[in-house]
Amino acid sequence: MATQHSRSAARLMMAPAVILLLGWMLVPLVMTLYFSFMDYRPMRGIVECCVGFSNYERFITSSAFLDSIIVTMIMVGGILAITVIGGVLLAILLDQPIWGQGIVRILVIAPFFVMPTVSALVWKNMFMDPVNGILAHLWRFFGAQPHDWLSQSPLFSIILIVSWQWLPFATLILLTAIQSLDSEQLEASEMDGAPALMRFWYIVLPHLSRAITVVILIQTIFLLSIFAEIFVTTQGSFGTRTLTYLIYQRVLESQNVGLGSAGGILAVILANIIAIFLMRIVGKNLDA
């Protein structure tokens, strides 16, 4: 009786969240899907339905699309490589018995809390500026020609900036995972004379594999939609136009909504492919 009562109450309590999220997901998505089959350019007053798959055809066959996919892959791949490898090494280092561990951890985590526009602008102007940036001073100190980061290697510069923001995230999660490692196992292998590298490869790394997968998947989802860092540094020029930025430009800058929406749908499909893998891992954990 009581269960019956609480069950219907439970459903009622869940309803607002479910309805809101359903609306938030479905309404704009259906609109985007609808726009993607239209010739819709509000600036010129063109609103024509329906043009079939021509937007998709144009979006996919344009050279900008292929470039943006390559840029996105390099950017996401580069950031993942730096943050995951750096994160594993840092997590192992922070797990060692050291003095002032708490303070070091706070220092390492800090960049994650810096808003993206701040970190991008601080890096762009105060560090990567070829005249007054800290890195230029450093280069000159060692007698080298200062590097004009954002115009000579813009993609790499953005990778560095975003990696700086996400390294703390990877480190924090991997550190949490490392701390759950059974230390007896490690000590036993140390007694048996296994060298540090072997212990890392055969005990630590396998233990971390799940956390690493989670880090990769979650970061990928966030990194696929990097926006502010590009917006305030290169505005998508000099070969830094990711798929997200390309769609943004089509939709809001050149106001070709039909074309941009076709790109938007492609981005949704792409993100979903990655999401499926993440959901599987999270779902498995839910049973346990």
Binding site: I221, A271, A275
Partner: peptide, 20 residues
Amino acid sequence: ILMWMLSTKMLPAVGVLYPI
């Protein structure tokens, strides 16, 4: 329901920018 809610978080914002 929990998994579905999580999946809405993965919707790329730029895909729904114009409708919003």
